[in-house]
């Protein structure tokens, strides 16, 4: 069974065993506007918690996607490189960015759960 967590920087991470799938939230894609370019991390890269792991660019600006927790990049979503609009259309599904093998699975407990993240974005709106 998977469980999803969020960061204050509007990334989500869905955990299945020791693998986390990372993307940006619907709030983030909406704030960015039309995504026209993404740059994904190299496979095998070790990323620290909070480190810049990917780049997402809209017509207007570039933004970083940070690793919600530390880990090794095991997979990247080439589909969003080919069709960046997937990030807008399905940010928490087909628009995922990369997968990490978690360095410390317990680290996710320091992230926001769905309820806490919903409260955060309600406060922003």
């Amino acid at each position: 069974m998977s469980k999803i967590y969020f960061t204050k920087d509007h990334e989500w991470i869905r955990i299945e065993a020791d693998i986390g799938t990372v993307g940006i939230t619907d709030y983030a894609q909406h704030a960015l506007g039309d995504v026209v370019f993404v740059e994904l991390p190299d496979l095998g890269r070790q990323v620290a918690q909070g480190a810049e792991a990917a780049v997402v660019e809209s017509v207007k600006a570039a933004s970083e996607v940070y690793a919600p927790v530390a880990g090794e990049v095991t997979e990247v979503n080439e589909a969003i490189v080919v069709d960046p609009a997937l990030v807008n259309q399905d940010p928490q599904g087909q628009g995922w960015f990369f997968r990490l093998r978690l360095a410390n699975p317990a680290a996710v407990e320091g992230l926001l759960d769905e309820k806490a993240y919903d409260a955060l974005i309600r406060a922003l709106e």
């Binding site: 506007g33 039309d34 026209v36 809209s58 017509v59 207007k60």
Partner: peptide
């Protein structure tokens, strides 16, 4: 207005 709901790409 920086954009309307359809977004910058569609407007352009």
């Amino acid at each position: 207005p920086v954009q309307y709901p359809t977004g910058i790409l569609a407007e352009h």
